[in-house]
Write a protein that binds this DNA or RNA. Sequence first.
DNA 1: TTTTTTATTGAACAGTGTTTAATAGGTTTG
DNA 2: CAAACCTATTAAACACTGTTCAATAAAAAA
Lengths: 201, 201
Amino acid sequence: MSIAKRKELEKIEMHKRILDGARKIFLEKGYEQTSIRNIASEISYSPGSIYFYFKDKNEIFHELHKEGFRLLLKQMKAADVIEDPYERYKELGLVFIRFAQHHTDYYNLMFLVSETGKARGEGFETAKEAIEHLSGVIQQCQDQGRFQGLDNKYLTFMTMSSVHGICSLYCKDRMSGFFQKSGEELMLHGYETFLGMIDKS
Amino acid sequence: MSIAKRKELEKIEMHKRILDGARKIFLEKGYEQTSIRNIASEISYSPGSIYFYFKDKNEIFHELHKEGFRLLLKQMKAADVIEDPYERYKELGLVFIRFAQHHTDYYNLMFLVSETGKARGEGFETAKEAIEHLSGVIQQCQDQGRFQGLDNKYLTFMTMSSVHGICSLYCKDRMSGFFQKSGEELMLHGYETFLGMIDKS
DNA sequence: TTTTTTATTGAACAGTGTTTAATAGGTTTG
DNA sequence: CAAACCTATTAAACACTGTTCAATAAAAAA
């Protein structure tokens, strides 16, 4: 292994080290409460070092953002074993809900944290893939005769909105107080109610 | 008018002056980008003065939060002139959507900005009122025979989730790129699709 | 007029993201 | 091997942030 090669590996390793430290703190404290100094001290480096590997705090954030989408997409694709498209459609919502439940911090990072950076639209390929996956499953349902007369795009958007709305209210925990039910209960029964409606279409 | 009374009025006036300055900057730049120093300089006072009238930045934020809910609730109640409960139910969603469209910054403040303070659950009376209003309209629909066999609480939550999901995705403008449609188009057609589903229940 | 209360201020503290000049160390070259 | 070079790292500095607080000017009460 050449020296140049080793150096390159070391660079990648350091990149990863920063990301590991950042992930820990980001998922623990959220975007605003995470500071470059926190991350630096977590991995026992000086704050300045981080800027040798990342342009700014936002770039680190976006890396984790992508990471989250990759994780979600993986779990969405796991539902591919279900053969019936409509059953798969219903499962996809549950995948989303489970993701919000078990990876609440990722969910916050992915969907709820406001982006301070301007680099919008970049690095959203995985997000796009996730949407297209859902859209594809809905198309398969429509091919089977379900959801007749409904536009695929709007139905996809509406499904996403509804499930995201449920998960988003769950993650912010703004609702359980009003309804005197646990967040999990609301989320699951809310989704069941949604499926009950959609089942009649 | 006694001196004490005048002083009290001056205090209220200053309170309002701060809130006016804060509103302008909060709605312009969002929570994190708004600083006490910004607000102070906006109204030509020193940063310290603000702490004579407000406990901290979060208290100012919550005041505007409430303000937003009062505004929303007013527009929700304007739908009371519609006599048929189901038509009123459908209008309520549109009220919400219009609110997100025309008061995007308030919407962000009310539903999307993460609260840093711990004072959760306080001052949410107006929010509760809004939810109960919706719940009441749904109940009236159910009294008329609509939505049979569905739990009022979960249906209320599901409706809120769906509409909030639509508005939330609109406000973050994360979707228009994927669907090659304008945010407004997505939002309105998305809601129509939702109504199309619910109409069959 | 003196005392007391009240509102306002500017400085200070501890924190933030980011930039940069200096530096130590390994790598390459003469 | 020594000199030059490159590269990763650092501490310090800059301009911010929310918040606190002693000093103070102004107004009200005594």
